[in-house]
Nucleic acid binder design. Structure first.
Lengths: 197, 197
DNA sequence: CAGATGTTATAACACTGTTATGTTTCTCAA
DNA sequence: TTGAGAAACATAACAGTGTTATAACATCTG
């Protein structure tokens, strides 16, 4: 039946996500995924076409949830949306480090996402652009290319998150990471504020 | 002799860097490194202890050259040093993408740098902190924790460079990447400027 | 010179992604 | 119901890669 197929697909993906959460990207081994999902190695090939298929599924699932988390975070006045978005970005990455690495770094050697998956990734970026435009409309950000401003903010978020995920700390106290991140967001907001502000 | 040992070490490292430049981190295969260096597979184990030893050598070599490039770039008035440093950061990463990936991402699955190598990496960060302090002294950046400001700037540089290395472009024109990056640097500088400026 | 130490060359091993193969099970029309 | 075709399973084999073993060779030391 098609329903059991789909259930097994789900079980395999869930097993892969479990291994990913527990041991990072390098814990994604086809045999282990199959064992964890309670099926044979071949099932992974029947359902996903191989390891890259699993990784692509994780990639797509990750961006789906990531985009959703970002959209849900933006629910206040435009003045607050930048910080809300930035903090949600970091939070999601810290809670889903394995997925984040697969989505934004080449943690799995041979894997490159399909064109459709890449488009989906850019759709996630659209949330940032929309937020920038809302803030521009409210006079909190300078006029100009919203894509460019969103890109710079994405860059700062991504860079700080990556450094944090890599375990590189600015100070001895790990508690400071969040404060440093928030301060970076504020600085970026000031940097892109209208001239007269 | 010890000199021939050292020469062979150098030949192996050079071969690894050549493969890295040509095919990226996943082109670093022990057999290929040995063949390119004109020695046997075992020589890699005698000289470097295995693949991780080679990767660590690339890591250390990379941070050595990276730090040097950053230091050489800072040679103007404090007002210009931020942009000089940021542009040198991006330029080095684009010219040494393989090394940059090994240094800042986990491009080689099992590899983790030794504590000494990690200290060396933080030494590179010190160039940023020194520059921030010079700019603070000249009144171009707000007073406060120089480490924190440098960290945010590093984050933005790292994030934008990683996105660029991953081939993700903000617009259709690849020429815009440098302009976007430079604008991001300016925004960060404005964001951390003293209040009255 | 003789032994110890290190290096070379070759091969074998372990792990992982992938493919092949024979068997079983299921589906569904006759 | 039944039998043919298809799908899936279980097992094994294959290919690539990091690593280790082993024996022959070289080099240095006393």
């Amino acid at each position: 039946m098609s329903s059991t197929s789909s259930e097994q697909q789900h079980a395999i993906l869930a097993a892969a996500l479990k291994l990913l959460a527990h041991g990072g990207p390098q814990a994604l081994r086809v045999r282990d995924i199959a064992t964890t999902a309670g099926c044979t190695t071949m099932a992974v090939y029947s359902r996903f076409g191989g390891k890259d298929g699993i990784v692509e599924a994780i990639y797509v699932d990750g961006f789906h949830r990531f985009t959703q988390a970002l959209e849900e975070a933006v629910n206040g006045r435009p003045a607050d949306q930048g910080e809300q978005l930035g903090m949600a970005y970091r939070m999601w990455a810290l809670e889903n480090p394995g997925s984040y690495q697969i989505m934004f770094t080449q943690a799995v050697p041979g894997f490159t996402p399909s064109p459709e998956a890449t488009l989906m990734a850019l759709g996630s970026f659209q949330v940032l652009v929309d937020t920038v435009q809302a803030q521009q409309g409210a006079g909190h950000l300078r006029q100009g290319d919203a894509t460019q401003i969103a890109w710079a903010q994405w860059g700062m978020s991504h860079g700080l998150v990556m450094l944090e995920l890599a375990g590189i700390q600015p100070t001895e106290e790990p508690v400071a990471a969040e404060a440093v991140y928030r301060d970076g967001l504020h600085a970026a907001a000031r940097g892109f504020a209208p001239d007269q502000a």
